[in-house]
């Protein structure tokens, strides 16, 4: 309960900071919605020409895109430092968080909000709503799938970027990992063979933030539920263990740091 109160206080502060530059905040949201819309037009044109791809229709793509965009947007909006954690570690900027009495990883991740993430959330929910798969119990499954997706996105990038404790700068590595997981999460699983599917469920968990939750929303199955919850828990625990063991090696630094 205390942790939740703390999280809400951080999110409130993030929103207040964003509101200091209202025009920029609203512009980011609008542009992200437009950006996603333009990207999806290519899928619409593709399916218009080919009808379906191994059973996947444009409605399935809307659902997939809706889940992945919402999960990505929620990660960016509520845990915005998940893309910059490596830089924070390498530049010795964890001091601020370490001097305050709260769980360090949660505090770092939730201390930044990427405004465009709200655009992804709005677009993702709308995409799900018009996908033709919307039902109220489907919405609950959508929420669960997105929550698991958020856990996997932030855990996966935390694992990659925690390597900064050992190898220094991981900016390039995390950008490649981020791009890979995001790209593969937006393609239908029907395109991939068994080996690739296995990789996308484990080392590069793109399927766990896209295809598996999409299947789960389409129709409830215990296998899908187990895959997304186990995936989320395993990645989350692994991320916490790696970050925690790396923290012992943290070297701080003398760079000037500003909390925005």
């Amino acid at each position: 309960m205390k942790t939740l109160k703390f999280l809400f206080a951080l999110w409130k502060a993030n929103l207040q900071a964003a509101m200091e530059f209202r025009a920029a905040f609203i512009t980011q949201i609008i542009f992200m919605i437009v950006n996603n819309g333009v990207y999806f037009i290519f899928w619409v044109l593709y399916f218009d020409k080919f009808g379906n791809v191994r059973g996947w229709t444009v409605n399935d793509m809307m659902l997939l895109f809706g889940i992945a965009a919402t999960a990505w947007g929620a990660s960016a909006y509520f845990f915005g430092n998940f893309t910059t954690l490596g830089e924070i570690i390498a530049n010795g900027r964890l001091d601020y968080y370490l001097s305050l009495p709260k769980p360090i990883l949660l505090h770092v991740l939730a201390s930044k909000s990427i405004g465009s993430g709200m655009g992804d959330i709005l677009y993702g929910v709308a995409s799900f709503a018009i996908s033709g798969y919307f039902t109220w119990d489907g919405f609950l499954r959508f929420f669960l799938g997105v929550t698991a997706g958020v856990c996997i996105f932030i855990s996966f990038l935390t694992i990659i970027q925690s390597l900064s404790f050992w190898i220094g700068n991981t900016v390039a590595l995390s950008q490649v990992a981020l791009s890979a997981v995001l790209t593969f999460s937006l393609y239908p699983s029907a395109l991939f063979n068994t080996t690739t599917k296995f990789i996308l469920l484990t080392i590069l968990p793109a399927a766990l933030v896209g295809n598996v939750p999409a299947e789960f929303v389409r129709s409830f199955s215990w296998t899908s539920l187990l895959q997304i919850t186990a995936g989320a828990v395993v990645f989350l625990v692994f991320a916490m263990i790696i970050f925690r063991s790396g923290l012992r090696r943290y070297e701080s630094g003398s760079a000037i740091q500003v909390e925005v």
């Binding site: 900071a17 530059f21 001091d95 601020y96 000037i256 740091q257 500003v258 909390e259 925005v260």
Partner: peptide, 12 residues
């Protein structure tokens, strides 16, 4: 208090 590491949120 770290003189070179402000803890106040810059834009707030």
């Amino acid at each position: 208090v770290f003189g070179q590491r402000p803890q106040l949120w810059y834009h707030l």
